[in-house]
Design a binder for these strands. Structure first.
Lengths: 249, 249
DNA sequence: CGTCAGTTTGACCTAGTTCAAGGCCAGTGG
DNA sequence: CCACTGGCCTTGAACTAGGTCAAACTGACG
């Protein structure tokens, strides 16, 4: 078991376990996927709108994000991804990318051929189900993102995003107490929330002034979880995480 | 073949064929799914946030929509569904609903037990793939919806939504020339686009004044497709429709 | 003919944008 | 060791897209 814990794809297993139970055999199967690992500098596209990738990628370290660019130069971001996530699993069945995938900061990424995933799915229908489930959770997060951008104020949007990111990271063991890495500039934050940088800045200050969070040096600290949750109208059900007790097992 | 064309689930087959090819055997398998059909009045919930449905539903006629309600009473809609759509296929793997599904107008809905879908998936892995693919397209539409709400003006948002709805309906043969049914009130439109009713009204008038569309009596007519597309920044790639030539076959 | 749901209009208001300028590092190169 | 970048964050002032409230209008339907 020792070698499993130190395996390079361990973050993937941890992520899968945050939403479903895996047998030892299934873990073994996942870990033996043939991947090609690459470190990438920050702010770099990995896959672009219009590409037809033949592999999907797994975040091992760092942060990725997905976005679209409009004709007028505006950018909309619709997800952030941390260690263990497979941000472009959808490319397995949607041949042409309809958006871009890029690094926020320097990251380690594993590339996994579609064929290998397909074979894994064929052999382990349970894993295929979990992958499918993962893409469905992705969609559930998009739905909530729509609510966030469509119906919440700037202040609420930011609070909500912080809750979501923190909860997801906690589920895969990437938090340290009530802090987690959050190396995201205010400009990027604005593009994720449909806001201008200036207004993100001001709303952020309000969040700080009210003692809900601390955000500095790329570290987000939740100073008052209850009030932050309330401010963002956050309810974690849509993330479909296993209850912590089960996840612990 | 005659009985196939008049089969009650024919709209489902047509929808599946708009995104993937189906063999005769596969069509037969889909059509023989055991469903329970029900007509529902307009503006009625079918499944609610928090429910744990054991079936999913297929629109046979009419229009459904999915939405969430916020604590403060605001509503955000994130999709409309027409004949052939399976709006809550995700409930197959996400046990608890994170949103509501309701009728816009009086509609005919077929209910399909999860067990039957699972069995179909097991027997026909190609169909399972197509279903998966369908949920991925759902997610792609959500992504574009985020862009719409996050980064486009009211005028652009409405134009974009019209393009999307029209294109989707055309793909399943629900348009009549450059017109299609669009029995959606301005209030509902506002909740879909993150706008107030008043502002939807004014933007709509602009769209009309410029001769891009006609919308009256629940019928949407596209008067200038090119300019409407441009106004909404619409590019249909994300819908992952098969090219019309293939779909025709 | 009244009612009810939906649309339209007007007037006023505010959350958020835009533009432009400073401030604050951390890193680089002399 | 210091000056000089170049990101990023912060601030201020003016502006505008869109929201809110409230009333009038329209048409369908019993």
């Amino acid at each position: 078991v020792e070698h499993l814990l130190s395996h390079i794809l361990q973050p993937l297993v941890r992520q899968l376990e945050s939403v479903a139970h895996l047998s030892d055999e299934e873990k073994e199967a996942v870990l033996s996927l043939p991947v090609f690992v690459r470190r990438m500098r920050g702010d770099n596209d990995i896959v672009r709108d219009g590409d037809r990738p033949s592999q999907c990628c797994i975040v091992l370290e760092g942060v990725l994000y997905r976005y679209k660019l409009l004709e007028n130069g505006k950018r909309q971001i619709f997800s952030f991804h941390v260690a263990g996530d497979i941000p472009d699993l959808q490319s397995l069945f949607l041949t042409e990318m309809d958006h871009n995938l890029a690094t926020v900061v320097s990251s380690m990424v594993a590339f996994l051929p579609h064929d290998a995933v397909r074979e894994l799915n064929r052999k382990h229908s349970r894993i295929a189900e979990i992958f499918w489930r993962n893409t469905l959770i992705d969609a559930a997060i998009f739905r909530e993102w729509i609510v966030n951008v469509g119906r919440r104020s700037a202040y609420e949007r930011i609070a909500h995003l912080f809750c979501e990111v923190f909860t997801k990271m906690q589920a895969v063991g990437l938090c340290d107490g009530n802090s987690c890495a959050f190396p995201i500039t205010q400009t990027v934050l604005g593009d994720a929330l449909g806001l201008s940088t200036v207004h993100v800045n001001r709303s952020l200050q309000k969040l700080r002034a009210e003692g809900l969070i601390t955000l500095a040096g790329g570290i987000l600290t939740i100073d008052n979880w209850e009030r932050l949750k309330e401010a963002g109208g956050f309810t974690p059900a849509y993330l479909n995480l296993r209850p912590p007790s089960m996840a612990a097992e």
